[in-house]
Amino acid sequence: MKKSKLIALFVLLCVFGTHTHARKAKRVVLIALDGISVEGFQKAQTPCLDALLAQGARSLDTRVVMPSVTLPNWTSHLTGSGPEQHGVFNNDWLLNKSVYPLTEKDAKGYYPSVFKVLKEQLPTIKTAFYYNWINLFYPYNEAYFDEVSYLEKDAYVPNYDKAFQFLSDHRKQPTLVFLYSVHTDHAGHNHTWMSPPYIRSIEEADAEIGKFIEKMKKDDLYKDTHFLFLSDHGGINYGHGGTTVNEMIVPWGIVGPGIKKGLTIEEPNNTVNTASIILHLFGAKQPLSWTGEVIRSIFK
């Protein structure tokens, strides 16, 4: 091969990278269930999630950030950083009461989320945030979302319907959807982790996830969608926040174009990696303030 061709090939590799699939992501759906311990996930009958995750890569050894409570960890999932960077140390965090100096902030004082980064680098992307725990949205600047839907009293099924409609309406545009429910966590707090009501709450969510996936398939949205299954912490007895295995280790999975099928992830994984992987799927550049990493072994 001539020297000029070798130089041209080197330039192409530098510009586009060796993982060309990262430029092809059309949509990413984050299926987020609160408070799912590995033990609970394994005990519950989850045929829909099992079938989905069998088509991709799965970890049963993903670590959460400390403290093992809800808001710090979901913020870490969606900002590619731990509390030391994003400043969310507890469930009561509010922007106007935060005194911790963030490593980076936008014009309104928020730490840069995956939604902000994608909106700035991919202006055509559509973003949505569906949730049923009011505090969950507090760390994010609403300017970077096209749709936000909050449901009271642990309701979550209507948000699955809204998320599907959003994905269908924007099928020709890159799309990122965060689809969350807290009812699984509340079942643990009310009845203890691993209790029959807690296990049943996971199984009920699995059934709704199955219906959502089937609608995606019928509407020809499934094949070119990346799905991530996420949780923020486990639990023990009536709570969480400590450092036991059942609190600090959660399941994590990813499915979609370019992802290896049937892979058990061996590398160390953490909630801070989620946003980094999402950016990689869309071919976006990660902020220097983030600490998350891309798990390269999950890609074909």
Results as ranks from 00 to 15, higher is better:
Lys5Ala: 11
Leu13Tyr: 12
Cys14Met: 14
Ala22Lys: 15
Ala22Tyr: 05
Lys24Leu: 12
Lys24Trp: 04
Lys24Ser: 11
Gly35Asn: 03
Ile36Ala: 10
Glu39Cys: 03
Phe41Tyr: 15
Gln42Leu: 15
Pro47Trp: 09
Ala51Ser: 15
Leu52Trp: 03
Leu53Tyr: 11
Leu53Val: 12
Leu53Thr: 04
Gly56Cys: 06
Ala57His: 05
Ser59Arg: 06
Ser59Lys: 01
Leu60Pro: 03
Ser68Met: 08
Val69His: 07
Val69Leu: 15
Thr70Trp: 07
Thr70Leu: 05
Leu71Lys: 01
Trp74Ile: 12
Gly80Lys: 06
Phe89Asp: 10
Asn91Val: 15
Asn91Ala: 15
Trp93Lys: 07
Tyr100Ile: 08
Thr103Trp: 07
Tyr110Val: 02
Tyr111His: 09
Phe115Tyr: 14
Lys116Ala: 06
Glu120His: 03
Thr127Val: 05
Phe129His: 00
Asn135Met: 14
Phe137Gln: 04
Phe137His: 05
Glu142Tyr: 05
Tyr144Val: 00
Tyr144Leu: 04
Phe145Pro: 07
Ser149Met: 11
Tyr150Asn: 04
Leu151Ala: 15
Glu152Lys: 11
Lys153Cys: 13
Val157Ala: 12
Asp161His: 15
Gln165Lys: 14
Gln165Phe: 01
Thr175Tyr: 00
His183Ser: 10
Asn190Lys: 08
Ser195Cys: 10
Pro197Glu: 09
Ile199Trp: 00
Glu203Leu: 11
Glu204Pro: 02
Glu204Phe: 01
Ala207His: 12
Ile209His: 09
Phe212Ile: 06
Phe212Asp: 08
Lys218Pro: 01
His226Trp: 08
Phe227Thr: 02
Asn237Thr: 10
Gly239Arg: 09
His240Trp: 06
Gly241Thr: 09
Val245Gly: 02
Asn246His: 14
Trp252Pro: 02
Ile254Cys: 06
Gly256Trp: 04
Ile259Gln: 06
Lys261Asn: 09
Lys261Asp: 08
Thr264Leu: 03
Thr264Cys: 03
Glu267Tyr: 04
Val272Arg: 08
Asn273Trp: 05
Thr274Ala: 10
Leu281Ser: 10
Phe282Asp: 03
Phe282Pro: 04
Gly283Trp: 10
Gly283Asp: 04
Gln286Trp: 12
Gly292Lys: 09
Ser297Glu: 15
Ser297Gln: 14
Ile298His: 01
